[in-house]
Design a protein around this nucleic acid. Structure first.
Length: 768
DNA sequence: TTCTAACGCCGGCTGAGAGT
DNA sequence: ACTCTCAGCCGGCGTTAGAA
């Protein structure tokens, strides 16, 4: 007040002492002071660089305002500045849309401009009322958000879009938000020939997320869409295109992709028709149901297709990696994901584990990106987008559609669960999603994961089947050993003759040495690449007994202890020669094999393949293929379970694992033998059938699982299938009889007679 | 009938090879 | 450098059988 220099806390009380001013003036002054205090508080808050960034721009100089605000300094927070710019863009967009809306409202082609009244019926599932709560707008305060959500009845939930923040959600003057359910109702109620309403759709803001009821309905309505619906949808998506929330610069690279986001995309088959229909305002031409090429592909719901189109750009291109890593979710989400990354990051882990952690973060980003599709970026910070169960259900389907293998899809879902659990335990400060909702999301993801596991099992079987096609032959393994043994000494000589740091000869030696050791022991690549110099130097033994190298760092060290490599004197001599030459290469680490990066697994594999080809052996197997071959030979050659176990253990995996993943002994030959036994069971005399059953049991034990072994252990009278049945000294008469029968049957089956008919072989064999 | 230990299956999760 | 995908252990949980 003029003349008043008093500074005290209770200004309102003090002003009452100024009896000369009117009540009205007093009120005005108080409002001014409150506003100034509020703006000062906002500026103070902005200075702290808050996360999530402030939605209000009240304390910032506004371009349209005059000197009153221009005196204030612009915010130093980059997120706030970006936000302010974004808001400006949106305001422009609103203006532009307002103009086009006004133009269309008075257009003669818009007979339904009045039909967009809020009274139009809407259908909404009431299964998840919380999910129907929509964040209202970008610049609306949290209060307004709550108001809009609470004011809208469950039956008519609505969200004002990011592009029209000023519009009150209950305003009857504006066109209603484009609720797809309503659209569906319209479709049902109107005849297929009814003209569509470009005005309402064009002026409508885009739906910020996929409404659950739509996804459900669309899931149910998988049949080819009618011409009107498809064109309508198409037109709407086209018109909503410019209203997609802005994304940071990294996403600008995928701008073209973003333009194909759900609700912003055109269906490929419909693009031409849509443009024509929207231009002349007539219903689009019908699309032949059989015409689309997509009919031949695995079917996805409409929503899933759209989401797939939005997600696909992140999974395309030569390098699979870089795209999903570059996903930007906005300041609030990115900050949270960063925290999550710090949580899963293992500082003590290997380089590989760190890589895996990076991938895991990226997958969490994919999950978030997926759920945020269609939402305004300015409302991400509420995290309400997470609670979208119907959309969640499409997650595996969309991942499958972008070309991920079942195992990877399972991993994606599993890591989404991990992320959600972290979210449940550490909810972001401003999250509006309740713990109950988080639990529901996790439960849903677990269900998805469980359903996927069935597919994964089938996939694993297929993978193993594929491996069978490229199984390395026993002869090739033997030849590999022979050739590598002959070549390695000369390679070492070459290294000695070559320039000190010449990598060419060195890598050839690595390849041959890896081939040699792998073809003998079938170790994983990691055992060789992680073998340290000191471990080779510390090998146990001497020239007469040979040398044993214990490799400490490998994948299954916890279960099987050190991986062992036994070398004879000559082989160990190669190692010493290499260690002598190794120092000339200026090694950067303490591993026996030197690669640019510690480990260097993939390079090792390349050198191995190169050596394999140089030796003139068949195919181009990986080291894992050789491991598979060695495992298979173990199963085929060793019927003694103890020997098998020992060999498997030396390869640092269990017999079960070997049986499950590696050993390809369940081949056609074995199946043929078993079939013969079945045929015998069917056609032979009861006595012979019993013997055949015993034989079948023996044949089946070529895949001895632990259970089977236990079973045998509990029935000591039965001979081991590997040993000669006749050698059994069982005192049981019945048993001896049985064994003799078995002997006869085995002898009969050994007669390799052609089997022209499916059922005749057994008979012929038995007769013989 | 209930409790408990043993056993085996299967899901979860991590490590690592392969590919780009 | 990063991701995809396969490999493979670990632990939870259901089942079974023996003991109380």
């Amino acid at each position: 007040m003029p003349g008043c220099r008093l500074r005290r806390m209770h200004v309102a009380k003090h002003l009452k002492t100024h009896h000369v001013i009117s009540r009205r003036r007093l009120k005005e002054e108080l409002v001014k002071l409150k506003r100034a205090a509020g703006i000062a508080a906002l500026a103070k808050l902005r200075a702290t660089n808050p996360q999530p960034p402030m939605a209000t721009t009240l304390d910032l100089p506004h371009p349209r305002e005059g000197s009153s605000t221009s005196q204030r300094q612009p915010c130093a927070n980059p997120s706030c500045r970006a936000l302010a710019q974004h808001c400006q863009g949106l305001e422009k967009e609103i203006k532009r849309l307002g103009r086009s809306n006004a133009a269309l409202r008075f257009s003669p082609l818009c007979p339904h401009s009045s039909s967009s009244s809020p009274k139009s019926p809407r259908r909404h599932s009431s299964s998840s009322p919380k999910s129907l709560r929509r964040p209202s707008s970008s610049s609306s305060s949290p209060k307004s958000l709550r108001r809009s959500s609470s004011s809208s009845s469950p039956k008519s939930p609505r969200r004002s879009s990011s592009s029209s923040p000023q519009r009150p959600s209950s305003s009857s003057s504006r066109p209603p938000p484009p609720h797809l359910p309503r659209r569906k109702m319209r479709r049902r109620s109107s005849s297929p020939k009814s003209p569509r309403r470009p005005s309402s759709s064009s002026s409508r803001p885009p739906p910020p997320h996929l409404p659950p009821e739509e996804t459900q309905q669309q899931q149910q309505q998988q049949q080819p869409s009618s011409s009107s619906s498809s064109s309508e949808e198409d037109e709407e998506t086209q018109q909503q295109q410019p209203q997609e929330p802005a994304t940071p610069k990294q996403e600008a690279k995928t701008l073209s992709a973003r333009r194909r986001l759900p609700f912003t995309s055109r269906l490929p088959q419909q693009s031409s028709s849509s443009s024509s229909s929207s231009s002349d305002g007539k219903p689009a031409r019908s699309v032949s149901p059989g015409a689309p090429a997509e009919d031949t592909k695995p079917k996805l719901g409409k929503v899933a297709r759209r989401v797939h189109r939005a997600m696909a750009p992140y999974f395309t291109g030569k390098s699979r990696g870089s795209k999903i890593r570059g996903i930007v979710l906005g300041a609030s989400l990115d900050a949270y994901v960063e925290d999550y990354g710090q949580f899963i990051f293992c500082p003590e882990g290997t380089a590989k584990m760190m890589e895996n952690a990076v991938s895991k973060i990226s997958r969490a980003k994919v999950f978030l990106k997926y759920l945020t599709l269609g939402w305004s970026q300015l409302t991400y910070w509420t995290w309400e987008f997470l609670f979208n169960i119907p959309l969640l259900k499409f997650y595996p389907a969309v991942l499958r559609k972008v070309g991920l293998a079942p195992t990877t899809i399972s991993l994606y879902v599993g890591q989404a669960i991990s992320f959600m659990e972290y979210f449940r335990d550490t909810p972001p400060k401003y999250s509006r999603i309740t713990t109950g909702q988080t639990v529901v999301v996790i439960r849903e993801l677990r269900k998805l994961s469980k359903d996927l596991s069935r597919t994964v099992l089938g996939h694993q079987a297929l993978i193993k089947q594929e491996k069978g096609k490229r199984l390395v032959a026993r002869e090739d393994l033997a030849r590999c050993q022979e050739l590598a043994r002959a070549k390695i000494p000369s390679l070492l000589e070459d290294i000695e003759k070559a320039a000190p740091r010449d990598p060419k000869t060195r890598y050839r030696f690595f390849g041959y040495f890896a081939a040699y050791l792998s073809s003998i022991y079938g170790h994983r690549t990691g055992v060789l690449t992680r073998m340290r110099v000191k471990e080779v130097r510390a090998a146990i033994g001497d020239d007469t007994t040979g040398y044993l190298i214990n490799v400490l760092e490998h994948k299954t060290v916890r279960k099987f202890g050190t991986a062992q490599i036994y070398l004879n004197a000559e082989e160990y001599g190669w190692c010493w020669t290499w260690l002598r030459l190794r120092s000339r290469t200026v090694p950067t680490n303490r591993f026996f094999f030197i690669f640019p990066r510690p480990g260097g697994g993939q390079r090792h594999g390349q050198y191995f393949r190169r050596a394999w080809t140089e030796m003139g052996l068949k195919g181009a197997p990986s080291i894992m293929d050789v491991k598979t071959a060695v495992s298979t030979l173990n199963f085929e050659s060793n019927r003694d379970s103890e020997v098998r176990t020992n060999l498997a253990s030396f390869m640092c995996h269990s017999v079960d694992t070997q049986d499950h993943f590696y050993a390809l002994h369940r081949n056609i030959k074995r199946a043929q033998t078993i079939r013969k036994l079945f045929v015998c069971l069917a056609v032979a005399e009861p006595e012979q059938a019993a013997a055949a059953a015993a034989g079948a049991a023996a044949a089946a034990t070529t895949q001895p699982r632990e259970g089977a072994m236990r079973m045998r252990a509990s029935t000591p009278n039965l001979p081991d299938p590997g040993e000669d049945p006749g050698s059994s000294t069982c005192s049981n008469r019945q048993c001896r009889k049985k064994i003799k029968r078995l002997q006869r049957l085995n002898a009969a089956l050994r007669v390799e007679e052609p089997c022209p008919g499916s059922g005749t072989f057994g008979v012929v064999a038995l007769r013989s």
